[in-house]
Amino acid sequence: MSNIKARGIGFINTYKAFTKAGVQSSMAYRASFLCFVLGESLYCFVMYFIWKAVFSSSGNSTFMGFSMTDMTVYVFLSNLVGFLTSTDSTENLADEIHDGSIIMRMIKPVNVDFSLLAFELGNKVMMITCVFLPVMIGVEIYRFTVLGYCAFHIGNFLLFVVSTVISYLLAFYLNLIFGYLAFFLMNIWGFSILKGSLIKFFSGSLIPLAFFPGAVRVVFEQLPFASLVYVPTMLYMGKYSGWEIVFVLAKQILWLGVFIYISKVIWKWAQKRLAVQGG
């Protein structure tokens, strides 16, 4: 028992260093962090105005089951989820693979994905306090002024938190797999643009998946991308009920398992063919 405890503390101590480095790095890049936030909010406002125009042109108060208030919450929240679950340490991994510095990570007695995750944890703490909380409060104030009552639901919020954590891990392993592709591909830049636009499309960041016609919608909802943004956002908005909630969460966990497995397989395989050039 005490042995396990000691190992646990050892584990925390090992990875705490990575988390600390993560906090420090996000402090160092404050300016670019701020610019990034500004850029994201700009995008949200473009979408907000487009939907506003759509609603005023349609003449109805609801558009495919969404009211304008719903839509506003959706736009800001889905982008927030996308932002919270974005991971860039895996892109650094691609760079490390190209310039060979990956070897420094491999010779350390740590697990590659845990070290990256611990590093990002530091980053996320900052994102949650500086971005997530203010935007969420803003969204709730907006909802309150429009609807005249507080629509915030603590149960939905907790489901949202659970789902977002899973979605983050899912995004992380998905990106890790993309990062490993750097072992085989050169134009990782073009590829990441492609990845970005596909995720934006299939995850529901661009359009709520509910807006797609019948069969397409059913297919999209089963894809792993839906678990990235659409599921947490819809949970927050309370659009799922009863067994549906269990079902969507189970699907998220299932996909997470699949991606962890794939990343392990690729990593094992890539390690064997890794040839670091130069020194």
Binding site: L185, N187, W189, G190, F191, I193, L194, S197, L198
Partner: peptide, 8 residues
């Protein structure tokens, strides 16, 4: 890859 990415 690059051109197709921007196209998609």
């Amino acid at each position: 890859t690059g051109a197709v990415s921007f196209l998609i």
